[in-house]
Design a protein around this nucleic acid. Sequence first.
DNA 1: ATCGTTTATCGGCAATATACGATAAATAAA
DNA 2: TTTATTTATCGTATATTGCCGATAAACGAT
Lengths: 112, 112
Amino acid sequence: MGVTRTRKTGFATEVVRTAGWGRALAHPARVAILILLAERRTCVCGEIVDDLPLAQSTVSQHLRVLREEGLVRGEVDGTRSCYCIDADRVRAMMTDLNRLGASLERKAACGC
Amino acid sequence: MGVTRTRKTGFATEVVRTAGWGRALAHPARVAILILLAERRTCVCGEIVDDLPLAQSTVSQHLRVLREEGLVRGEVDGTRSCYCIDADRVRAMMTDLNRLGASLERKAACGC
DNA sequence: ATCGTTTATCGGCAATATACGATAAATAAA
DNA sequence: TTTATTTATCGTATATTGCCGATAAACGAT
Protein backbone atom coordinates (compact mmCIF):
# COMPACT_ATOMS: atom_id res chain seq x y z
CA MET A 1 0.00 0.00 0.00
CA GLY A 2 1.43 3.25 -0.96
CA VAL A 3 2.85 5.36 1.75
CA THR A 4 0.52 8.28 1.99
CA ARG A 5 2.72 11.31 2.02
CA THR A 6 1.54 13.97 4.40
CA ARG A 7 2.83 17.51 4.70
CA LYS A 8 4.82 16.52 7.72
CA THR A 9 6.69 13.40 6.74
CA GLY A 10 10.42 13.64 6.47
CA PHE A 11 10.99 16.88 8.33
CA ALA A 12 12.33 17.64 11.77
CA THR A 13 9.68 18.13 14.40
CA GLU A 14 10.73 21.69 15.10
CA VAL A 15 10.46 22.48 11.41
CA VAL A 16 6.99 20.96 11.30
CA ARG A 17 5.97 22.89 14.38
CA THR A 18 7.16 26.16 12.87
CA ALA A 19 5.30 25.42 9.66
CA GLY A 20 2.20 24.89 11.78
CA TRP A 21 2.46 28.46 13.07
CA GLY A 22 2.88 29.56 9.48
CA ARG A 23 -0.24 27.72 8.49
CA ALA A 24 -2.20 29.41 11.26
CA LEU A 25 -1.13 32.84 10.01
CA ALA A 26 -1.31 32.04 6.32
CA HIS A 27 -4.71 33.59 5.72
CA PRO A 28 -5.56 37.26 6.28
CA ALA A 29 -8.83 36.31 7.92
CA ARG A 30 -7.02 34.35 10.60
CA VAL A 31 -4.57 37.14 11.31
CA ALA A 32 -7.48 39.55 11.53
CA ILE A 33 -9.36 37.23 13.87
CA LEU A 34 -6.40 37.00 16.21
CA ILE A 35 -6.11 40.76 16.35
CA LEU A 36 -9.82 41.15 16.98
CA LEU A 37 -9.77 38.55 19.74
CA ALA A 38 -6.85 40.30 21.39
CA GLU A 39 -8.52 43.70 21.20
CA ARG A 40 -11.78 42.55 22.71
CA ARG A 41 -10.22 40.19 25.20
CA THR A 42 -13.31 38.05 25.02
CA CYS A 43 -15.32 37.47 21.97
CA VAL A 44 -17.85 35.36 20.20
CA CYS A 45 -18.05 34.20 16.66
CA GLY A 46 -20.95 36.44 15.72
CA GLU A 47 -19.30 39.68 16.69
CA ILE A 48 -16.21 38.74 14.74
CA VAL A 49 -18.27 38.02 11.67
CA ASP A 50 -19.55 41.58 11.68
CA ASP A 51 -16.01 42.85 11.21
CA LEU A 52 -15.00 40.43 8.50
CA PRO A 53 -16.03 40.19 4.86
CA LEU A 54 -16.89 36.53 5.25
CA ALA A 55 -19.89 34.37 6.03
CA GLN A 56 -20.45 33.07 9.54
CA SER A 57 -19.66 29.51 8.56
CA THR A 58 -16.41 30.54 6.96
CA VAL A 59 -15.33 32.42 10.03
CA SER A 60 -16.16 29.38 12.12
CA GLN A 61 -13.87 27.31 9.92
CA HIS A 62 -11.01 29.77 10.32
CA LEU A 63 -11.53 29.66 14.07
CA ARG A 64 -11.28 25.90 13.89
CA VAL A 65 -7.89 26.15 12.15
CA LEU A 66 -6.68 28.53 14.83
CA ARG A 67 -7.86 26.08 17.46
CA GLU A 68 -6.14 23.18 15.69
CA GLU A 69 -2.87 25.08 15.69
CA GLY A 70 -3.36 25.92 19.34
CA LEU A 71 -3.46 29.70 19.17
CA VAL A 72 -7.04 29.96 20.31
CA ARG A 73 -9.19 28.26 22.91
CA GLY A 74 -12.96 28.14 22.77
CA GLU A 75 -15.46 27.62 25.53
CA VAL A 76 -19.17 27.19 25.21
CA ASP A 77 -21.02 29.85 27.14
CA GLY A 78 -24.73 29.40 26.80
CA THR A 79 -25.67 29.72 23.18
CA ARG A 80 -22.44 31.53 22.56
CA SER A 81 -18.87 30.47 22.18
CA CYS A 82 -16.22 32.38 23.97
CA TYR A 83 -13.01 32.35 22.04
CA CYS A 84 -9.81 33.42 23.68
CA ILE A 85 -6.26 33.77 22.56
CA ASP A 86 -4.01 31.27 24.28
CA ALA A 87 -1.27 33.58 25.44
CA ASP A 88 1.08 30.71 26.28
CA ARG A 89 0.80 29.37 22.78
CA VAL A 90 1.32 32.79 21.30
CA ARG A 91 4.53 33.04 23.30
CA ALA A 92 5.54 29.58 22.15
CA MET A 93 4.88 30.62 18.58
CA MET A 94 6.95 33.75 18.91
CA THR A 95 9.77 31.75 20.46
CA ASP A 96 9.83 29.40 17.50
CA LEU A 97 9.51 32.16 14.94
CA ASN A 98 12.20 34.27 16.57
CA ARG A 99 14.48 31.29 16.79
CA LEU A 100 13.99 30.74 13.08
CA GLY A 101 14.49 34.39 12.28
CA ALA A 102 17.65 34.56 14.37
CA SER A 103 19.19 31.55 12.68
CA LEU A 104 18.33 32.97 9.27
CA GLU A 105 19.74 36.39 10.02
CA ARG A 106 22.82 35.11 11.77
CA LYS A 107 24.00 33.05 8.89
CA ALA A 108 22.55 34.74 5.87
CA ALA A 109 25.61 36.57 4.66
CA CYS A 110 25.05 35.91 1.03
CA GLY A 111 28.03 36.00 -1.24
CA CYS A 112 26.12 35.98 -4.51
CA MET B 1 -20.42 38.72 -13.09
CA GLY B 2 -19.77 37.88 -9.50
CA VAL B 3 -16.80 39.54 -7.97
CA THR B 4 -14.14 36.88 -7.70
CA ARG B 5 -13.14 36.88 -4.11
CA THR B 6 -9.42 36.52 -3.58
CA ARG B 7 -7.64 35.75 -0.35
CA LYS B 8 -6.69 39.35 0.06
CA THR B 9 -9.83 41.33 -0.50
CA GLY B 10 -11.27 43.14 2.41
CA PHE B 11 -8.33 43.08 4.78
CA ALA B 12 -5.89 45.72 5.89
CA THR B 13 -2.65 45.74 3.95
CA GLU B 14 -0.56 45.01 7.01
CA VAL B 15 -2.74 42.00 7.76
CA VAL B 16 -2.35 40.78 4.20
CA ARG B 17 1.39 41.27 4.38
CA THR B 18 1.64 39.31 7.61
CA ALA B 19 -0.44 36.52 6.12
CA GLY B 20 2.03 36.46 3.23
CA TRP B 21 4.84 35.66 5.64
CA GLY B 22 2.66 32.98 7.10
CA ARG B 23 2.10 31.51 3.69
CA ALA B 24 5.83 31.41 3.05
CA LEU B 25 6.41 29.47 6.27
CA ALA B 26 3.31 27.32 6.02
CA HIS B 27 5.03 24.26 4.61
CA PRO B 28 7.81 22.32 6.34
CA ALA B 29 9.74 22.07 3.10
CA ARG B 30 9.93 25.84 2.84
CA VAL B 31 11.07 26.26 6.42
CA ALA B 32 13.68 23.58 5.84
CA ILE B 33 14.83 25.26 2.63
CA LEU B 34 15.30 28.58 4.39
CA ILE B 35 17.40 26.94 7.09
CA LEU B 36 19.48 25.11 4.52
CA LEU B 37 20.07 28.28 2.52
CA ALA B 38 21.13 30.11 5.65
CA GLU B 39 23.52 27.37 6.69
CA ARG B 40 25.23 27.13 3.33
CA ARG B 41 25.17 30.85 2.66
CA THR B 42 25.02 30.12 -1.03
CA CYS B 43 23.22 27.26 -2.55
CA VAL B 44 21.69 25.74 -5.62
CA CYS B 45 18.52 23.86 -6.12
CA GLY B 46 20.16 20.51 -6.69
CA GLU B 47 22.06 20.45 -3.45
CA ILE B 48 18.93 21.31 -1.55
CA VAL B 49 17.06 18.50 -3.22
CA ASP B 50 19.53 16.00 -1.82
CA ASP B 51 18.55 17.00 1.71
CA LEU B 52 14.83 16.99 1.18
CA PRO B 53 12.40 14.11 0.68
CA LEU B 54 10.97 15.73 -2.43
CA ALA B 55 11.48 15.68 -6.15
CA GLN B 56 13.57 18.36 -7.83
CA SER B 57 10.56 19.94 -9.49
CA THR B 58 8.71 20.14 -6.21
CA VAL B 59 11.63 21.84 -4.52
CA SER B 60 11.77 24.30 -7.39
CA GLN B 61 8.13 25.14 -6.80
CA HIS B 62 8.71 25.75 -3.11
CA LEU B 63 11.61 28.02 -4.02
CA ARG B 64 9.29 29.91 -6.30
CA VAL B 65 6.86 30.50 -3.43
CA LEU B 66 9.69 31.77 -1.26
CA ARG B 67 10.73 34.09 -4.06
CA GLU B 68 7.14 35.31 -4.51
CA GLU B 69 6.95 36.16 -0.84
CA GLY B 70 10.31 37.88 -1.07
CA LEU B 71 12.33 35.84 1.39
CA VAL B 72 14.68 34.49 -1.22
CA ARG B 73 16.47 35.88 -4.23
CA GLY B 74 17.71 33.78 -7.08
CA GLU B 75 20.40 34.52 -9.60
CA VAL B 76 21.30 32.51 -12.62
CA ASP B 77 24.91 31.43 -12.54
CA GLY B 78 25.75 29.42 -15.58
CA THR B 79 23.65 26.31 -15.60
CA ARG B 80 23.01 26.72 -11.92
CA SER B 81 20.82 28.97 -9.88
CA CYS B 82 22.21 30.66 -6.84
CA TYR B 83 19.55 31.13 -4.24
CA CYS B 84 20.16 33.44 -1.34
CA ILE B 85 18.16 34.49 1.63
CA ASP B 86 17.19 38.12 1.45
CA ALA B 87 18.27 39.26 4.86
CA ASP B 88 16.41 42.56 4.60
CA ARG B 89 13.18 40.76 3.92
CA VAL B 90 13.79 38.34 6.73
CA ARG B 91 14.18 41.31 9.03
CA ALA B 92 11.01 42.86 7.62
CA MET B 93 9.20 39.60 8.23
CA MET B 94 10.39 39.39 11.80
CA THR B 95 9.36 42.98 12.37
CA ASP B 96 5.85 42.24 11.20
CA LEU B 97 5.60 38.97 13.09
CA ASN B 98 6.95 40.48 16.29
CA ARG B 99 4.58 43.40 15.97
CA LEU B 100 1.72 40.93 15.67
CA GLY B 101 2.98 38.83 18.56
CA ALA B 102 3.40 41.88 20.76
CA SER B 103 -0.09 43.14 20.11
CA LEU B 104 -1.51 39.70 20.80
CA GLU B 105 0.39 39.25 24.03
CA ARG B 106 -0.18 42.77 25.25
CA LYS B 107 -3.92 42.55 25.11
CA ALA B 108 -4.66 38.89 25.48
CA ALA B 109 -5.69 38.85 29.10
CA CYS B 110 -8.56 36.48 28.66
CA GLY B 111 -11.33 36.58 31.20
CA CYS B 112 -13.04 33.37 30.12
C1' DA C 1 27.61 20.68 -33.19
C1' DT C 2 26.74 17.28 -29.74
C1' DC C 3 26.51 15.69 -25.16
C1' DG C 4 26.02 16.01 -20.25
C1' DT C 5 24.46 18.83 -16.35
C1' DT C 6 21.33 21.68 -13.96
C1' DT C 7 17.10 24.09 -13.10
C1' DA C 8 12.42 25.82 -14.57
C1' DT C 9 8.23 24.81 -16.38
C1' DC C 10 4.40 21.96 -18.15
C1' DG C 11 0.73 18.50 -17.72
C1' DG C 12 -1.87 15.91 -14.87
C1' DC C 13 -3.56 14.17 -10.73
C1' DA C 14 -4.80 14.02 -5.73
C1' DA C 15 -5.44 16.43 -1.64
C1' DT C 16 -6.41 20.58 0.89
C1' DA C 17 -8.25 25.01 1.44
C1' DT C 18 -11.73 28.42 0.90
C1' DA C 19 -16.25 29.86 0.58
C1' DC C 20 -21.23 29.81 0.92
C1' DG C 21 -26.05 28.37 2.07
C1' DA C 22 -28.66 25.26 4.62
C1' DT C 23 -29.33 22.82 8.60
C1' DA C 24 -28.52 20.87 13.14
C1' DA C 25 -27.74 21.55 18.00
C1' DA C 26 -27.96 24.02 22.11
C1' DT C 27 -29.84 27.33 24.93
C1' DA C 28 -32.27 31.57 26.35
C1' DA C 29 -36.52 33.87 26.26
C1' DA C 30 -41.44 34.04 25.67
C1' DT D 1 -43.58 24.22 24.60
C1' DT D 2 -42.62 27.33 21.17
C1' DT D 3 -39.69 30.76 19.30
C1' DA D 4 -35.60 33.30 18.61
C1' DT D 5 -30.66 33.39 18.83
C1' DT D 6 -26.17 31.71 18.19
C1' DT D 7 -22.56 28.71 16.58
C1' DA D 8 -20.92 24.24 14.51
C1' DT D 9 -21.26 21.21 10.97
C1' DC D 10 -22.73 19.34 6.50
C1' DG D 11 -22.96 19.44 1.61
C1' DT D 12 -21.18 21.27 -2.28
C1' DA D 13 -18.60 24.00 -5.55
C1' DT D 14 -14.38 26.07 -6.87
C1' DA D 15 -9.59 27.35 -6.27
C1' DT D 16 -5.25 26.45 -4.70
C1' DT D 17 -1.54 23.62 -3.25
C1' DG D 18 1.50 19.86 -3.51
C1' DC D 19 3.53 16.29 -5.83
C1' DC D 20 5.70 13.83 -9.57
C1' DG D 21 7.56 12.59 -14.23
C1' DA D 22 8.69 14.46 -18.49
C1' DT D 23 10.46 17.99 -21.04
C1' DA D 24 12.34 22.45 -22.21
C1' DA D 25 15.90 25.82 -21.70
C1' DA D 26 20.40 27.33 -20.77
C1' DC D 27 25.01 26.53 -20.51
C1' DG D 28 29.72 24.24 -20.11
C1' DA D 29 32.57 20.88 -21.93
C1' DT D 30 34.21 18.01 -25.58
